[in-house]
Design a protein around this nucleic acid. Structure first.
Lengths: 222, 222, 222, 222
DNA sequence: TATGAATGAGGCTTCATTCAT
DNA sequence: AATGAATGAAGCCTCATTCAT
């Protein structure tokens, strides 16, 4: 459309990038439809027609962009794991602060992270379909829990080296902390059980969890 | 159908109990087929034909005993939650022993319980289908985790009252203990991730978990 | 419904045979629909919906009776080969007659047989689909051409033994005779070419074919 | 069609011929893809995408050059019948030789011709699709069997006129000869039946076929 | 003119459910 | 109460064809 005044060989790259853009856009459009439907109905419960309708494309277009239902599901899941799963990053900035205080902030944000609707839905999906799509759990772990664990373990190691904590196995301790955060609220919500997830309840839980962790790995006579 | 003219009404109870027996037997037969298929394929993935075949009855019989697929699924899930989910019971017998030692036994058996295939499958199913069958999670909680939590909290309260532990909120502490047991192995297995679940690994994990708990709630200068 | 006054164990056989009868009837009904559609459109061109409609059953019923399209096609083809392909049988009854005269009758009936619409359609189908269903050609040969060849070779051998013909390889001679019958009319009709297949044309062709065969294998100075 | 009365018009012809050339080349390219796919899968079994891929052009180009699938199929079939169907030509060069010897060469080359893979595939296609494309058989006949028949009949007429054979109806005799060549091997191969088509088997069959023909039309006391 | 993404009809098949026996 | 054949809706996927670029 826009004729470039540049002498030559500009058109092909333009065309290419334009069409690639369109392609990506359509792909993204489909993935959004897929997300909506898969999260609501699971893999088996979702239908390609539904996804096509939700994405605003024809059924055929689904198959132009993905090899089939399983392929679309995998793409959706990996894509969303990559972009939607938050992780606790850059705790290093907190290094100046008192350990216990940082821990409280940490536990609270971890709990909120895990309560995030997309995280919960992805967790439910992957647990339900892990049998059919074993490789997807890797993605879920790598981009979500695993990443957080890694960052957390690093921070714990540094704090331990600094003598503020006494931790022999930071990886394990990190996992203990993260899993303790799931008590009471996260764990129950995964089962769709009624639970008080008000900010106050979360704050209280975070606090008690941080306290517990300090008892486990803090200085002896705190 | 054909009521026998015999005087006392002795026969009817007999017949009734006999036919009730038969009914129950058939119902149980169906539930066994349903269990096999639902656990293997999930709710959407299972087919009534498959269940009928596996149960050794005709498809029509399924509908004589249950209202439909959803109804059969609910029945299966509640039934199996009731009978197949183990809980840590009668820890009271251990009351004479040293707390730390009992805790080690406890954590180990809890981990093994949660790794039990049926427990894992039921967990996966309920998490996967919680959106479609929100009421089922109650059963799962009541007969599984909840029951264990309750028993465990009782025991902790008694030990705390005896001065062997210092626990303010035994329910919460019980949940912390149970959830700590899921670190490293149980949590990963639910996602079908590769994990070392050898007896040695389990034993080590149980031991470290018990130690952590003692740090949290044990006497200060142990 | 109809309570039989016969003492015992009569009902089950009745039920069985009744339901078996019904089953066979439905199967036959489907096969008739399949025949119509497959003969008209070939294997790929036929659709299961069309067949169901033509047979007057639902699409699902097709799959209760056959494993799928390929299976239904095979069943249709073998069934029809068995029952619809005529063969020249019992030529032995003609043994008293003059060879040349019998041959003329033979060639005429062979030509008519091969021009029979069902034979032609089955031939077209099997040639078209032989790549996809190699085993079906066997059935077609066994019940059609092969059977005729066998009977014919027997008869030729007897006539040869009687000195009325001089044939060293009756199987080959039989095939030569049958194939000569395809000249002019049958061969062209298989390609849907326009051809004069009036009784007179057939009769003339039959006569000339018999003459030719007599030249090949008849007494030298006839 | 349009004979150009214009004297010079040199430039336009150049352009025209160049683009016509390109057009023809692309058309030929498409036809080659079509050939590969139609021969392998039949009309219904072939897909336009497959053809486009095989031809190395886009699907859209197919529709720029042909009206649709049916049209492309017709073009492919006629084109290939014209160019790929061999015929027995120029037997006249053999005129000096002994009839029986020439016949043996003839039958052998005829059998080999008919066993040629492309011939067989085209035959299978046309027989299978004759119902849908009745007009195509003409092309198949005209360029294949029909042409051979014509040449052969000419030769037989000459030999008959020369007194080496006694044939009243050379057209019919030619067809008898060609059809006799199909016994045993060609006929069976069209049904994909197992058959010995070794050079020796073909040679023997050719020889016996020639002998048979000589008995039919050769000098009486050969 | 060439491209290939988009379309939507239609193909094969499965499945929950019903119902006559 | 048990059976299982029949149903038809719905699922996944393919394909000939169109059309904007």
């Amino acid at each position: 459309m826009t004729s470039t005044p540049v002498p030559r060989t500009q058109s092909t790259p333009d065309e290419t990038s334009a069409s690639v853009c369109q392609l990506r856009a359509k792909r993204e459009q489909i993935l959004q439809g897929a997300e909506k439907v898969f999260l609501a109905s699971g893999y088996e419960g979702a239908s390609m027609s539904q996804i096509a309708r939700e994405a605003g494309v024809s059924k055929g277009t689904l198959y132009n962009h993905f090899d089939g239902k399983a392929s679309l599901f995998s793409a959706f899941f990996e894509e969303r794991s990559k972009t939607k799963l938050a992780a606790i990053e850059a705790i290093s900035r907190e290094d100046g602060q008192n350990v216990h205080i940082v821990l409280r902030r940490l536990t609270e944000s971890a709990i909120k992270m895990m309560l995030n609707p997309t995280s919960m839905d992805l967790y439910r999906i992957i647990v339900g379909e892990a049998g059919k799509f074993p490789n997807l759990a890797d993605a879920f772990w790598r981009y979500g829990f695993g990443r957080t664990l890694h960052n957390l373990a690093d921070w714990l190691r540094r704090r331990s080296d600094a003598g503020e904590l006494h931790i022999e196995d930071p990886e394990f301790a990190a996992e203990q902390l993260m899993i303790l955060c799931q008590a009471r609220i996260v764990h129950r919500r995964r089962l769709m059980l009624q639970v008080d997830d008000s900010p106050e309840a979360i704050s209280l839980l975070a606090s008690r969890t941080a306290d517990s962790f300090m008892k486990m790995y803090g200085p002896r006579h705190q």
